[in-house]
Design a binder for these strands. Structure first.
Lengths: 175, 175
DNA sequence: CTATTGTAGTTGATAGATCAACCGACGCTG
DNA sequence: CAGCGTCGGTTGATCTATCAACTACAATAG
């Protein structure tokens, strides 16, 4: 069959890169998630949200800001935050300047939780991802992957609850 | 706060690599999926399954083989295949040697569909992923990503419907 | 000031995937 | 060949995230 169709550079190395990309992602995220859930009862999504809040001014962000950063739809964020509110890690605060927006604010409990979970999570990333590379290789990877859409913010939004565009940010744990 | 905790190489380049990895994946897969659904009514998962079958001997594979390759649980595959059977792209065939296993076999209809969809999909991968790199860079990427768990099959299975280990394979379309 | 258009967030219905529990079939051991 | 652990696959309950529709408010135009 050969690889066929378009300009098709979809041969050996190209395919290796692509498949490695897809499969490693599935495997790593699955395991990070399992770790975090087992040790702290948090999903990676939860963790991300708490982290973004911890890094934000006043430890709070509008829902839509969270939506953009996490690559979830607005409705997805509403529900995720609902859960974290129920667990007491986040509280909702309505904005005085604009009655449409409501902030999610990290509670002290949420902040503690985040710090604990951070240990597990960072260790996991180190073990599953970073430890496979040298410092130089990590630089290469960062540069290469940084060109991809999503990492650079090239997303195309079309549908109703449009798919949010990704945004790079910093840090993987608080301290 | 600094990046903190473990052996923490979770600094600049390391974090860039990790975030680029996560965010680009989310963005790219989302868009590929949207493309494929819009043009052919198939999800990327569907496509993958059809492709694996097309590449297999006799165009058929046991459910568990599909489960491994796609990184879905056995129950996930059962349901996904159910759907493709309803659409007439796949048929189930029971194994004579071992009454426990049942094969999923690609029908002619499924094969045609796969070929059509392949054009869209390969073009998408080219556009969103491959076009960002030179041939040399793709080799580097393939090598680097190939070390990661999942790509190499290092998965750790624990729970009931255990998470399947990934397996590399070849090609992204049929012809 | 009112009407229109757009934005932030939530909600209902639904698809996709998981876990846990299960069934039937295999295969080994005693 | 009976008993026991294991394997392949399916099912029920549940969770997560989506889309589409809707509410409420804001901002702008007429």
């Amino acid at each position: 069959m050969a690889v066929s169709t378009p300009s098709s550079r979809l041969d050996g190395a190209a395919l290796g890169a692509w498949r490695g990309y897809l499969q490693s992602h599935a495997g790593i995220v699955r395991e990070l998630d399992a770790d975090l859930i087992a040790h702290h009862g948090l999903t990676v999504r939860d963790y991300e949200v708490l982290l973004y809040l911890a890094q934000a001014d006043e430890r709070q962000l509008p829902m839509s800001a969270l939506s953009e950063r996490t690559m979830l739809t607005r409705s997805g964020i509403t529900r995720l935050v609902d859960g974290l509110v129920d667990q007491g890690m986040i509280e909702r605060i309505s904005c005085e300047r604009d009655a449409r927006v409501s902030y999610a604010r990290l509670t002290d409990a949420g902040h503690s939780k985040l710090r604990e979970a951070g240990r597990t999570h960072v260790a996991g990333i180190e073990r599953l991802f970073l430890s496979n590379f040298t410092a130089t290789e990590l630089e290469q990877l960062a540069e290469l992957l940084g060109r991809l859409p999503g990492a650079t913010g090239v997303a195309q939004c079309t549908a109703g609850d449009e798919a949010p565009a990704a945004r790079p940010s910093s840090r993987c744990s608080v301290d």
